[in-house]
């Protein structure tokens, strides 16, 4: 293996990790903070992707879509929380089923609007040559956004009034309420935040994948495996599991086949869960 190949493989692995983090972080927040498993997560990603497609269609270009997607999907998330999710706190299994139903409704509605065909969105950047290999500059975009998103989430939960109150509400809702935290409002905001980050992820992966109404299903398994493997600490746990699963997946895919890469991701996740059932970060210190 030459140096250039090593660099390319490493970059591919990194962007694969970034990809996982972008599609999983919104889910990790909603699940980690609120114990709600949002099975419509894949559909939230799809809505983000479609927002960017729509914005590009109106001629505003790709980057404005990346800005618009979290806003649109975040607002949609707030609406969903008010209309559906708030009835399901403390009923995790029912929440799974209801959000699933929601996902089916979203897919069909988008299909009615846009049709079942794949929408293309071209990559906004070209590719760069490393030795005898070419690698898309978009890998760097993904990595950059993933890092920025992680820093923003960390800052938001550690250093803002909202973040401290949201963490308080998620740990002991009753007590948080008695000291004046409106945990209903916190939950609403947290769900909206998770949806917004998911929307961002959707917009960012749009140039890499076919944008179809049913695309969500393809990512939901990976996203869930990442979150479940990550465990209770939503930032550090998700980074760790994203790194573990993303690197495994991309290395196996590179040296074997994409099929084996997917299988390896699953097997690693199951083995990790067998060893630490509450996820990698279950024994870690810290709160994020």
């Amino acid at each position: 293996m030459h140096l250039d190949e090593i660099v390319v493989v490493a970059l591919t692995a990194l962007s694969s990790v970034a990809f996982l983090l972008l599609i999983a972080m919104g889910l990790a927040i909603v699940f980690g903070m609120m114990r709600i498993i949002n099975l419509a997560h894949g559909e939230f990603l799809m809505l983000g992707a479609f927002t960017s497609v729509q914005v590009a269609r109106w001629g505003f270009g790709f980057w404005l879509g990346v800005v618009a997607a979290p806003l649109v999907v975040g607002a949609f998330g707030l609406l969903v929380e008010r209309l559906l999710i708030r009835f399901l706190y403390g009923r995790p299994l029912e929440a799974i089923l209801a959000t699933w139903g929601l996902g089916l409704i979203i897919v069909q509605s988008v299909q009615n609007l846009y049709g079942p065909l794949t929408e293309g969105i071209p990559s906004p950047v070209g590719s760069v040559r490393i030795g005898s290999f070419f690698i898309s500059q978009y890998s760097f975009v993904l990595i950059g956004f993933a890092v920025a998103m992680l820093i923003a989430v960390y800052w938001l939960f550690m250093y803002t009034r909202y973040g401290v109150m949201a963490r308080a509400a998620s740990q002991l809702a009753d007590i948080a309420t008695t000291i004046g935290v409106n945990s209903g409002r916190m939950n609403m905001l947290t769900f909206g935040l998770g949806a917004a980050i998911t929307g961002l992820g959707g917009a960012l992966i749009a140039p890499l994948v076919g944008v179809v109404p049913t695309m969500g299903a393809g990512f939901v398994a990976q996203a869930f495996m990442t979150v479940v493997t990550g465990g209770p600490l939503i930032v550090s746990g998700t980074i760790a599991s994203g790194a573990l699963l993303g690197i495994t997946n991309s290395l196996v895919s590179y040296f074997a086949t994409a099929f084996l890469g997917q299988a390896a991701l699953l097997i690693i996740a199951i083995i990790v869960l067998r060893l630490c059932p509450d996820g990698i970060s279950s024994g870690w210190r810290g709160s994020l």
């Binding site: 299994l93 299903a217 086949t257 099929f259 059932p277």
Partner: peptide
């Protein structure tokens, strides 16, 4: 592995979806 109730839902879901992708390939 003492996987919790809710996680069982997620893991079984993911396994099925991975089979979908894997067999599709």
């Amino acid at each position: 592995g003492r996987v919790g109730d809710v996680y069982i839902g997620i893991v079984t879901l993911a396994v099925t979806l991975v089979l979908f992708t894997a067999v599709g390939a």
